[in-house]
Design a protein around this nucleic acid. Structure first.
Length: 439
RNA sequence: GGCCCCAUCGUCUAGCGGUCUAGGACGUCGCCCUUUCACGGCGAAAACACGGGUUCGAUCCCCGUUGGGGUCACCA
């Protein structure tokens, strides 16, 4: 069986962390199985859907490295929905309803007030009072037997159809609601696995009956626990971290994906460079069923780790002009964002303002400025410089190295001075020591 | 309110009645490396929500309490 997964966002906003995780797991699973990852733009809601968000979603997926194998749009498939809807109508699985939203809302409140589940109650279709109203349409749930399936992450599931409302599938004006078109598309596209958040479990129960009503085998279902944040819930409808902030913050997509792929699973979270590695050990059975806490700080930590592991070839075209492999290897261990490289590169290949030093530090640096021109740079100047200074000043350890580091790099911390000195060259080093000593 | 999930170190989790003096990962702390710091390496501290059962014996099974999450739309 060829695996097909799908990610089905509506173009009513940008992607966010929760969305991205769903997209990732679908993409990863398809990749692992050598299957197809479909992006289905769920744009049946013409009011809220926009071409801009449609485009942004595809751009964001590309940026993440999760470009789909196929893109389809629900707005282009209405003929298909019409045909299938007609089949269901003729078969009596879809029926006309005439209540107004206000009436339904009132009824819900009454039921809730009585401590009853607010389930839709089927009406007497022959009621004359309904004459002349334009109907909307509901799918008739089969109350005959419990709805059951074996969920890939939640295990055996069982729903009593009496506790579910017949879902509205089509509005008075003929427009579609998501539930039915989604099933029709999953059948038509040969989707074999539906991976989504646990906020969809009861939808799945209903949709399972739709698959049956349409004479199709249902896909395998995997409902993952949602993510929560310290500030609250990160679900798709409430305020959450959007992909635009993520992109703007200069984080590597793989840092985000490394966390999202494994957070809430028993797999250790680590900075992974290749999507294939993430795909290889994706296992729904290893997913926890409790909501996991998402913390952006973890992404930042992973981002640094990831950078420290990246090879020159991985980042070469994103580095400033003149950056070389040795400079990358020297500096990468001190980067938190890739953009940090530029400033560090200036330290070894450009110019910067040395900071002002205290009197003691300035004296030491002045001495260093005298010694530096006399050193044989090719012999590894750092040790010679340190040794000479040590004997002439009696200083050692931090008192000796800290001022030099500050004068030469402008930073409190960084790569080993031996490598930095060599990389920046004698002229640059002498000039910096001299200016720092005279400021 | 009904229904459904969940409850182990700060966080994500392993554990499927004795093997648990409860394992791993991230974070934290310490040590080493660096004649400094960062990177890196090594090590340590750190948890079974509570109350009842069942059992010779409960982290593990049952019930309840408490606490989290989800859902019950003419949104997806």
């Amino acid at each position: 069986m060829t695996v097909t997964t799908r990610f089905a966002p509506s173009p009513t906003g940008r992607l966010h962390v929760g969305n991205i995780r769903t997209a990732l797991h679908n993409a990863l699973f398809a990749r692992k199985q050598g299957g197809t990852f479909v992006l289905r733009i769920d744009d049946t809601d013409a009011e809220r859907s926009t071409a801009e968000f449609d485009q942004a979603i595809r751009d964001d997926l590309d940026w993440l490295g999760l470009a789909p194998d196929l893109v389809v749009r629900q707005s282009g498939r209405f003929d298909l929905y019409e045909r299938e809807f007609e089949r269901l109508r003729v078969a009596g699985r879809v029926y006309a309803c005439y209540e107004t939203p206000e009436e339904l809302e009132l009824r819900r409140k009454v039921l809730l007030g009585r401590g009853l589940p607010p389930v839709y109650e089927r009406q007497d279709l022959t009621s004359p009072a309904l004459e002349g109203r334009q109907p909307h349409w509901r799918f008739r749930l089969d109350h005959g037997a419990p709805i059951e399936w074996r969920d890939l992450v939640r295990g055996p599931q069982r729903f009593d159809p009496h506790l579910l409302s017949d879902p509205v599938v089509r509005r008075e004006d003929g427009s579609w609601l998501y539930l039915l078109p989604s099933v029709i598309d999953d059948i038509d596209l040969g989707v074999t696995h539906v991976v989504r958040g646990e906020d969809h479990v009861s939808n799945s129960a209903v949709q399972l009956q739709m698959f049956a009503a349409l004479g199709a085998n249902p896909p395998a279902l995997a409902h993952e626990a949602l993510l929560v944040a310290a500030e609250g819930k990160l679900s798709k409808r409430l305020g959450s971290l959007g992909v635009e902030e993520l992109r703007a913050s200069g984080l590597e997509p793989m840092a985000l994906l490394s966390l999202l792929a494994r957070l809430g699973t028993s797999q250790p979270v680590e900075a992974i460079v290749e999507l294939d590695e993430l795909a290889a050990d994706l296992d729904f059975a290893r997913f926890g069923r409790a909501p996991a806490h998402f913390d952006l700080h973890d992404v930042e930590l992973l981002n640094a780790r990831l950078l420290h592991r990246l090879e020159f070839a991985d980042v070469a075209e994103r580095l400033p002009d003149g950056a070389t492999e040795p400079s990358w290897l020297l500096l990468r261990g001190n980067l938190e964002r890739l953009s940090d490289f530029a400033a560090w590169f200036t330290v070894i290949a450009g110019e910067f303002e040395p900071p002002e030093l205290g009197d003691d530090e300035r004296r030491l640096v002045a001495k260093a400025a005298e010694i530096a021109p006399t050193l044989d740079w090719s012999a590894g100047p750092w040790q010679a410089l340190a040794e000479t200074l040590k004997t002439s000043t009696g200083l050692k350890g931090k008192a000796l190295f800290h001022p030099l580091r500050l004068a030469l790099t402008g930073r409190e911390s960084g790569p080993e001075m031996a490598g930095l000195l060599l990389a920046m060259g004698q002229d640059r080093a002498v000039a910096r020591l001299t200016t720092a000593a005279n400021r």
